[in-house]
Design a protein around this nucleic acid. Sequence first.
DNA 1: TCTTTATATCACCGTATAGTTGATTAGTTG
DNA 2: CAACTAATCAACTATACGGTGATATAAAGA
Lengths: 94, 94
Amino acid sequence: MKMNEKLFDGVAERFKVLGESGRLRILDALRDGELTVGDLVQKSGLNQANLSKHLQLLHSLGFVSRRKHGLFVYYQLADDSVFKLCDIMCRKIT
Amino acid sequence: MKMNEKLFDGVAERFKVLGESGRLRILDALRDGELTVGDLVQKSGLNQANLSKHLQLLHSLGFVSRRKHGLFVYYQLADDSVFKLCDIMCRKIT
DNA sequence: TCTTTATATCACCGTATAGTTGATTAGTTG
DNA sequence: CAACTAATCAACTATACGGTGATATAAAGA
Protein backbone atom coordinates (compact mmCIF):
# COMPACT_ATOMS: atom_id res chain seq x y z
CA MET A 1 0.00 0.00 0.00
CA LYS A 2 1.31 3.44 -0.89
CA MET A 3 1.58 5.53 2.24
CA ASN A 4 -0.78 8.43 1.89
CA GLU A 5 0.53 11.70 3.27
CA LYS A 6 -2.54 12.00 5.45
CA LEU A 7 -1.96 8.60 6.97
CA PHE A 8 1.44 9.32 8.49
CA ASP A 9 0.08 10.91 11.63
CA GLY A 10 -2.59 8.31 12.15
CA VAL A 11 -0.19 5.43 11.67
CA ALA A 12 2.42 7.03 13.91
CA GLU A 13 -0.18 7.65 16.59
CA ARG A 14 -1.07 3.97 16.60
CA PHE A 15 2.52 2.77 16.65
CA LYS A 16 3.13 5.06 19.57
CA VAL A 17 0.33 3.39 21.49
CA LEU A 18 2.04 0.06 21.02
CA GLY A 19 5.41 1.57 21.90
CA GLU A 20 4.92 1.14 25.59
CA SER A 21 5.51 -2.16 27.31
CA GLY A 22 2.74 -1.61 29.84
CA ARG A 23 0.15 -1.49 27.10
CA LEU A 24 1.66 -4.49 25.37
CA ARG A 25 1.28 -6.40 28.62
CA ILE A 26 -2.36 -5.41 28.81
CA LEU A 27 -2.96 -6.61 25.28
CA ASP A 28 -1.09 -9.82 25.95
CA ALA A 29 -3.18 -10.44 29.05
CA LEU A 30 -6.25 -10.30 26.82
CA ARG A 31 -4.87 -12.91 24.50
CA ASP A 32 -6.98 -15.72 25.95
CA GLY A 33 -10.25 -13.84 26.18
CA GLU A 34 -12.04 -10.94 27.75
CA LEU A 35 -11.19 -9.64 31.20
CA THR A 36 -12.61 -7.02 33.52
CA VAL A 37 -10.68 -3.97 34.58
CA GLY A 38 -10.22 -5.54 37.99
CA ASP A 39 -8.75 -8.67 36.43
CA LEU A 40 -6.33 -6.53 34.49
CA VAL A 41 -5.29 -4.58 37.57
CA GLN A 42 -4.20 -7.85 39.13
CA LYS A 43 -2.53 -9.24 36.03
CA SER A 44 -0.70 -6.07 35.05
CA GLY A 45 0.29 -4.69 38.43
CA LEU A 46 -0.81 -1.24 37.28
CA ASN A 47 -3.11 0.70 39.51
CA GLN A 48 -6.71 1.30 38.57
CA ALA A 49 -6.44 4.89 37.37
CA ASN A 50 -3.40 4.24 35.27
CA LEU A 51 -4.82 1.09 33.78
CA SER A 52 -8.08 2.78 32.95
CA LYS A 53 -6.24 5.50 31.11
CA HIS A 54 -4.38 2.96 29.04
CA LEU A 55 -7.62 1.14 28.29
CA GLN A 56 -9.34 4.30 27.09
CA LEU A 57 -6.44 4.92 24.75
CA LEU A 58 -6.43 1.37 23.43
CA HIS A 59 -10.18 1.53 22.93
CA SER A 60 -10.23 4.89 21.22
CA LEU A 61 -7.79 3.63 18.60
CA GLY A 62 -9.56 0.35 18.02
CA PHE A 63 -7.20 -2.10 19.67
CA VAL A 64 -9.75 -3.36 22.19
CA SER A 65 -13.52 -3.53 22.38
CA ARG A 66 -15.66 -3.60 25.50
CA ARG A 67 -19.04 -4.52 26.83
CA LYS A 68 -20.63 -3.54 30.06
CA HIS A 69 -22.46 -6.02 32.24
CA GLY A 70 -23.67 -4.82 35.60
CA LEU A 71 -20.88 -3.16 37.46
CA PHE A 72 -18.20 -4.73 35.33
CA VAL A 73 -16.70 -3.72 32.03
CA TYR A 74 -15.25 -6.56 30.00
CA TYR A 75 -12.44 -5.75 27.60
CA GLN A 76 -11.25 -7.92 24.77
CA LEU A 77 -8.97 -7.65 21.78
CA ALA A 78 -10.68 -6.04 18.81
CA ASP A 79 -8.91 -8.38 16.39
CA ASP A 80 -5.67 -10.26 15.95
CA SER A 81 -3.78 -7.45 14.26
CA VAL A 82 -1.76 -6.72 17.39
CA PHE A 83 -0.21 -10.14 17.31
CA LYS A 84 0.50 -9.95 13.62
CA LEU A 85 2.34 -6.72 14.35
CA CYS A 86 4.24 -8.16 17.28
CA ASP A 87 5.21 -11.22 15.28
CA ILE A 88 6.83 -9.08 12.64
CA MET A 89 8.65 -7.05 15.27
CA CYS A 90 9.84 -10.14 17.09
CA ARG A 91 11.32 -11.44 13.86
CA LYS A 92 13.41 -8.28 13.67
CA ILE A 93 14.80 -8.87 17.14
CA THR A 94 15.73 -12.53 17.01
CA MET B 1 3.98 -16.42 18.58
CA LYS B 2 3.67 -16.37 22.33
CA MET B 3 4.97 -13.09 23.64
CA ASN B 4 7.94 -13.78 25.81
CA GLU B 5 8.21 -11.61 28.88
CA LYS B 6 11.68 -10.55 27.83
CA LEU B 7 10.46 -9.40 24.46
CA PHE B 8 8.02 -6.78 25.69
CA ASP B 9 10.61 -4.06 26.11
CA GLY B 10 12.34 -4.80 22.84
CA VAL B 11 9.12 -4.83 20.90
CA ALA B 12 7.86 -1.68 22.58
CA GLU B 13 11.14 0.07 21.86
CA ARG B 14 10.76 -0.70 18.17
CA PHE B 15 7.14 0.35 17.99
CA LYS B 16 8.10 3.59 19.66
CA VAL B 17 10.62 4.28 16.91
CA LEU B 18 7.86 3.94 14.34
CA GLY B 19 5.53 6.04 16.46
CA GLU B 20 6.80 9.30 15.10
CA SER B 21 5.64 10.67 11.79
CA GLY B 22 8.99 12.22 10.97
CA ARG B 23 10.69 8.85 11.02
CA LEU B 24 7.87 7.30 9.02
CA ARG B 25 8.43 9.96 6.39
CA ILE B 26 12.10 9.11 6.27
CA LEU B 27 11.30 5.45 5.79
CA ASP B 28 8.72 6.26 3.17
CA ALA B 29 11.21 8.41 1.29
CA LEU B 30 13.43 5.33 1.10
CA ARG B 31 10.66 3.25 -0.41
CA ASP B 32 11.98 3.56 -3.95
CA GLY B 33 15.63 2.97 -3.20
CA GLU B 34 18.62 4.25 -1.35
CA LEU B 35 19.22 7.93 -0.70
CA THR B 36 22.03 9.99 0.75
CA VAL B 37 21.66 12.03 3.90
CA GLY B 38 21.62 15.15 1.78
CA ASP B 39 18.77 13.77 -0.32
CA LEU B 40 16.85 13.05 2.84
CA VAL B 41 17.43 16.52 4.23
CA GLN B 42 15.73 17.90 1.14
CA LYS B 43 12.89 15.39 1.08
CA SER B 44 12.10 15.52 4.78
CA GLY B 45 12.66 19.19 5.53
CA LEU B 46 14.54 18.22 8.68
CA ASN B 47 17.92 19.77 9.26
CA GLN B 48 21.08 17.75 9.04
CA ALA B 49 21.71 17.23 12.74
CA ASN B 50 18.17 16.24 13.48
CA LEU B 51 17.91 13.91 10.52
CA SER B 52 21.16 12.26 11.38
CA LYS B 53 19.89 11.58 14.85
CA HIS B 54 16.83 9.84 13.47
CA LEU B 55 18.91 7.82 11.06
CA GLN B 56 21.19 6.56 13.80
CA LEU B 57 18.14 5.41 15.71
CA LEU B 58 16.60 3.69 12.71
CA HIS B 59 19.89 2.02 11.93
CA SER B 60 20.61 0.85 15.45
CA LEU B 61 17.29 -0.99 15.56
CA GLY B 62 17.65 -2.54 12.14
CA PHE B 63 15.14 -0.57 10.12
CA VAL B 64 17.67 0.80 7.67
CA SER B 65 21.06 -0.28 6.41
CA ARG B 66 23.78 1.94 4.99
CA ARG B 67 26.84 1.91 2.83
CA LYS B 68 29.48 4.53 2.42
CA HIS B 69 30.76 5.57 -0.97
CA GLY B 70 33.13 8.46 -1.19
CA LEU B 71 31.80 11.40 0.73
CA PHE B 72 28.27 10.10 0.75
CA VAL B 73 26.43 7.69 2.96
CA TYR B 74 23.60 5.87 1.26
CA TYR B 75 20.71 4.66 3.39
CA GLN B 76 18.16 2.10 2.39
CA LEU B 77 15.41 0.08 3.99
CA ALA B 78 16.74 -3.02 5.69
CA ASP B 79 13.75 -5.07 4.56
CA ASP B 80 10.06 -4.72 3.78
CA SER B 81 8.83 -5.30 7.31
CA VAL B 82 8.09 -1.61 7.81
CA PHE B 83 5.54 -1.68 5.05
CA LYS B 84 3.98 -4.87 6.27
CA LEU B 85 3.56 -3.15 9.60
CA CYS B 86 2.16 0.01 8.07
CA ASP B 87 -0.25 -1.96 5.94
CA ILE B 88 -1.74 -3.61 8.98
CA MET B 89 -2.00 -0.28 10.76
CA CYS B 90 -3.61 1.38 7.76
CA ARG B 91 -6.24 -1.32 7.68
CA LYS B 92 -7.15 -0.40 11.23
CA ILE B 93 -7.68 3.22 10.25
CA THR B 94 -9.77 2.89 7.11
C1' DT C 1 -32.75 6.33 49.37
C1' DC C 2 -28.46 4.86 51.18
C1' DT C 3 -24.44 1.93 50.59
C1' DT C 4 -21.23 -0.58 48.17
C1' DT C 5 -18.56 -1.72 44.32
C1' DA C 6 -16.38 -1.03 39.67
C1' DT C 7 -14.85 2.00 36.53
C1' DA C 8 -13.90 6.60 34.57
C1' DT C 9 -12.10 10.98 35.00
C1' DC C 10 -9.68 14.96 36.91
C1' DA C 11 -5.64 17.57 38.51
C1' DC C 12 -1.10 17.57 39.24
C1' DC C 13 3.76 16.28 39.12
C1' DG C 14 8.02 14.56 37.25
C1' DT C 15 10.39 12.89 33.53
C1' DA C 16 11.52 11.83 28.90
C1' DT C 17 12.06 13.14 24.42
C1' DA C 18 11.65 15.77 20.02
C1' DG C 19 13.17 19.49 17.72
C1' DT C 20 16.35 23.12 17.01
C1' DT C 21 20.73 25.46 16.74
C1' DG C 22 25.62 26.10 16.58
C1' DA C 23 29.90 24.24 16.76
C1' DT C 24 33.02 20.65 16.27
C1' DT C 25 34.94 16.40 14.54
C1' DA C 26 35.93 12.79 11.29
C1' DG C 27 36.57 11.08 6.94
C1' DT C 28 37.03 11.60 1.88
C1' DT C 29 38.31 13.85 -2.31
C1' DG C 30 40.88 16.76 -5.33
C1' DC D 1 45.69 22.11 2.39
C1' DA D 2 40.84 23.21 1.06
C1' DA D 3 36.17 21.75 0.20
C1' DC D 4 32.57 18.83 1.21
C1' DT D 5 29.43 15.22 3.63
C1' DA D 6 27.99 13.36 7.58
C1' DA D 7 28.20 12.32 12.60
C1' DT D 8 28.38 14.06 17.03
C1' DC D 9 28.06 17.02 20.94
C1' DA D 10 26.16 20.48 24.05
C1' DA D 11 22.63 23.20 25.46
C1' DC D 12 18.08 24.81 25.47
C1' DT D 13 12.87 24.89 24.94
C1' DA D 14 8.62 22.93 24.56
C1' DT D 15 5.67 19.46 24.89
C1' DA D 16 3.92 14.89 25.56
C1' DC D 17 3.21 11.26 28.47
C1' DG D 18 3.16 8.02 32.43
C1' DG D 19 2.08 7.65 37.20
C1' DT D 20 -0.84 8.69 41.12
C1' DG D 21 -4.24 10.22 44.56
C1' DA D 22 -8.67 12.11 44.84
C1' DT D 23 -13.07 12.52 43.12
C1' DA D 24 -17.05 11.50 40.10
C1' DT D 25 -20.13 8.40 37.76
C1' DA D 26 -22.89 4.44 37.26
C1' DA D 27 -24.98 0.15 38.51
C1' DA D 28 -26.71 -3.19 41.97
C1' DG D 29 -28.80 -4.37 46.09
C1' DA D 30 -30.56 -3.71 50.91
